[in-house]
């Protein structure tokens, strides 16, 4: 089951099944450019909101425009996770966002970098 999505191609939600079972539900970004997501990671709900920065835009050897993207997580909220550190969570988020990008914009996503801001756990989650 590589992806689940509705037929309208609206961004939310979808499930990927690689090594872990992910469901990523995106909450539409408003004018502030903050992108909130809810990631279901093996049954644990990780709510995070991030800012998207295009680190690099370049044309590949076929002349196709591609984008390397940094997602800085400025708010994150989740129950305690055993044996999972911030790097692990960054990797899970990166994998989910990569699949998300591949689904919707297959040829255009280059590298994705995810970084959790040190204060992200203290910031309030207020998206529905």
């Amino acid at each position: 089951m590589p992806y689940e999505n509705d037929h309208t191609e609206i961004y939310r939600p979808f499930t990927i099944d690689r090594e872990r079972n992910y469901t990523l539900n995106d909450i539409p970004a408003g004018p502030d450019g903050i992108y909130p997501f809810i990631l279901d990671l093996d049954g644990t709900e990780i709510k995070f909101a991030c800012e998207k920065t295009i680190l690099d835009r370049f044309q590949d050897q076929d002349g196709q425009w591609r984008f390397n993207i940094k997602w800085e997580v400025n708010t994150i909220n989740h129950p305690p996770l055993k044996n999972v550190n911030d790097n692990d969570i960054e990797n899970h988020i990166s994998e989910a966002l990569t699949a998300f990008g591949e689904k919707h914009n297959t040829s255009r996503i280059g590298d994705i970098v995810v970084k959790i801001h040190p204060h992200a756990r203290q910031n309030k989650w207020h998206w529905s």
Partner: peptide, 23 residues
């Protein structure tokens, strides 16, 4: 925020090989 427009915009920019993203 309904989402359909952004999905179409991403598809169009991809098809047009635009140097810009939907963001």
């Amino acid at each position: 925020e309904e989402g359909t427009f952004i999905a179409h915009l991403a598809r169009s920019l991809d098809a047009e090989n635009s140097p810009f993203t939907e963001s």
